[in-house]
């Protein structure tokens, strides 16, 4: 249970970190479209990866969320 709490906290911190990262010049440098990845402009491919990572984190969250232990009662 403690481990699950720890993993869940790590997921939350990672999600917040990704959100903050999105709004830094690391992802949205103003007026700059390079370097491209397979022809896709910089801000688009970096933010696409962030979106996918957020969904992956959500999936990991369903596995480690401490509340899942009450699931049987719920069903």
């Amino acid at each position: 249970m403690e481990k699950k709490r720890l993993y869940w906290k790590i997921c939350c911190i990672a999600a917040i970190f990704l959100c903050i990262l999105t709004f830094t010049p690391l992802v949205i440098p103003q007026g700059i479209a390079t370097p491209e990845l397979a022809g896709v402009p910089y801000s688009l491919w970096t933010s696409f990866i962030i979106t996918v990572l957020l969904v992956v984190l959500t999936y990991i969250g369903t596995r480690v969320h401490p509340g899942m232990q009450n699931e049987e009662e719920d069903v």
Partner: peptide
């Protein structure tokens, strides 16, 4: 940048 406006926000929203 419209991708960030909606898709990144939706990704965070599902979390």
């Amino acid at each position: 940048g419209a991708w960030i406006f909606l898709a990144v926000s939706d990704g965070a929203m599902v979390f």
